[in-house]
Amino acid sequence: MTFASCGPIDDTVVLRLGHGLDSSHPVHKGMERMAELVYEKSDGEMRIDIYPNEQLGTERETLELLQIGSVDITKVSAAVMEGFTRKFSIFSVPFMFVNEEHMHEMLDGPIGKRVLDAAEPYRLVGLCYYDAGSRSFYTTDRPVRKPEDLEGLSIRVQESVSAIRMVNILGGSATPISWGELYTALQQGVVDGAENNPPSFYLSRHYEVSKYYTLNEHTAVPDVLLISSNTWENILSEEQREIVQEAALESVPYQREEWEKATEEALEAVEKAGVEIIYPDREPFMEASEPFYERMRAEQPELYELFTEIQELGREFTD
């Protein structure tokens, strides 16, 4: 029925990994490290081919291709996973993590694993989280120093329900448009600003058209590495599965270092390019987010429970 059975002459298992980032991005470097580790651990019997820059489609489309079974691995933002399973929207809750250590503790621990496993009914197996830092606002004409400054500004957000809600609750007007169209949208004034982490702000060159960067760090939405259930169950052996899982987890600390470096470089570079970096008081922003928690408590009690559990964990990290 297929040519695949008589296809590859050697026994090398080739896994195709498609994602939307540029190959200079620190998350791409993490995946590269994972591919190296897989190759080493399998003595060259497994290979991961990486297709960056949306070569195989946007994040949502590539996820579909994982479910369909023609692409094996992908990296998506946890925000994109919301479209499938509500558990992932936990990361879009503003000001949930006390600090970076708190976030890493949650991702590496049982709570993180539980959220990752929520992808399974959707033909997706979660391998690990990659650090995607904290997201902050950047604006073209008007600096944002306190929540009130967001009033009347249309802010581009990801295609995520909670991201839209969060920006609207903080006072902005959320406008989901695609990442690829954002540069022109900022330039032409279709939107007044956007929100993202420092490396993305820098690499997308959005700093050329946005002169204010407000480091309020409202959310920390990690990236998620996923493998197709079809690949996982039908193509990989028990041993190969272990290799892939180990390689993914081992690439995480390396990726976090890369991320930190990239964040520092990015902030330095955009400042040099004339962007004013604003370090606002986070308190007013957190207070303005209260309605978000209230609404979550009323509408999504399960999610709220998860949220309190994470806050519980955060006690260890408050000073």
Binding site: R60, E64, Q67, I68, G83, F84, R123, E159, V161, P176
Partner: peptide, 16 residues
């Protein structure tokens, strides 16, 4: 049909 099935059964919703 397979595509419709996959996206329907696996609950892919459009964002807006």
């Amino acid at each position: 049909i397979q595509l419709v099935y996959v996206t329907y059964a696996l609950e892919q919703y459009s964002s807006a």
